[in-house]
Design a protein around this nucleic acid. Structure first.
Lengths: 193, 193
DNA sequence: CGATTGACTGAACAATCGTTCACATGAACG
DNA sequence: CGTTCATGTGAACGATTGTTCAGTCAATCG
């Protein structure tokens, strides 16, 4: 018994939780599966965490704290706005890439997979549409010499982010005009003083 | 009994489903609630739809078909790429706004509602950070005279869309460099030939 | 009028899941 | 050695949910 300490068991439970939540989403994750992953009994989990929710929120909070710290670090010695923005975006995205499991922890509840293939097909089609438009713009010289695929991805993500933000009932919804304006003209000033 | 027809009952069930799914998500929606909303028995729902899944997919499919048709219409007489892109984005976003319920139908299952308050606080903070950077850029003349709030929203949504796309296991992930480049410089060509 | 048809009912069933708590075990202590 | 402490167990409980199916009722038909 002494080969297990409270901290070690607690950590094991958190670790297993992360994996199970990431794979199954909150709803799909069940405590038996988590206990199994942590090599403890299901009752043991409740010795360390009050309930399933607390488990999830503990993980979520540590994730947010870490991303916060990372972002603060990245911005520390940057004054120039374009550079700052670049650092902000890059940090966020690279972090998400490195911690895919933490990203997945946020999603993929049971209903998520509902009609997933259909959704993916639909969205793929829409992305292609964007890409075609951008490719045409590049070919005609109206758009800059960018990678149409990458541009389409960014635009696609902007719209998708809008949808999710709406779902969350938040106020961070850009107007179509402002969105289009920024995507076409960019942030950097065009008229040189 | 004859005051109800098959089509009328079926439609009522679909209508009620939409509301319940939108409010509770797939997992949270239960068939008793749907039946209640449709003013039929729970067994009656199964006379029209094989299972809960079929109900959901029927709604999802009709939503996607409608958005598809709308987008096709909007792009029909447009040749210029910047205009086409503007139409595409505007249509998508306006449609989402008008059909919030359909958006929510997709959404509660993303698991984003878990730990919502904590997340909203965290994300609000991040958005403020973006906004400050943009505001500073505008004040120093490096960035164009845009609304920092709107720009921050767009940038925020781009990053958020990235997260969701990753969750969907898709390939539509822009690189940070390309993302930053596009957001700073925009799509429209800067060197005038 | 009895039989048939169409539309519907809701209790029951089986399965699942978060949580509890009486019990177990080993180590340390006096 | 008996007692206490620390760590852990897993069957059982209560609640919930998708689905089924024997039964009901009204309208129509022959």
């Amino acid at each position: 018994m002494n080969e297990r300490s409270r901290e070690s068991t607690r950590q094991r439970i958190l670790s297993a939780s992360q994996k199970v939540f990431a794979e199954h989403g909150y709803t799909g994750a069940n405590m038996r599966l988590i206990a199994q992953g942590a090599a403890v009994s299901v009752g043991c989990v409740y010795l360390y965490f009050k309930c399933k929710d607390e488990l999830y929120l503990t993980l979520l909070e540590s994730w947010m704290n870490e991303l916060d710290a990372r972002t603060t670090d990245a911005l520390e010695n940057i004054v120039e706005p374009a550079e700052a923005l670049a650092a902000f975006i890059t940090t966020g995205i690279v972090y998400a890439r490195e911690h895919k499991e933490m990203v997945l922890l946020q999603g993929r509840d049971l209903g998520f997979a509902r009609g997933l293939e259909m959704k993916q097909q639909f969205l793929r089609k829409r992305r292609s549409l964007i890409e075609d438009i951008v490719r045409k713009g590049v070919a005609t010289g109206i758009f800059c010499d960018c990678d149409p695929g990458e541009a389409a991805k960014l635009i696609f993500c902007s719209m998708r982010g809008f949808i999710v933000t709406m779902m969350m009932g938040e106020e961070a919804l850009y107007s179509p005009e402002a969105g289009v304006e920024l995507l076409l003209n960019g942030l950097l000033r065009r008229d040189t003083p």
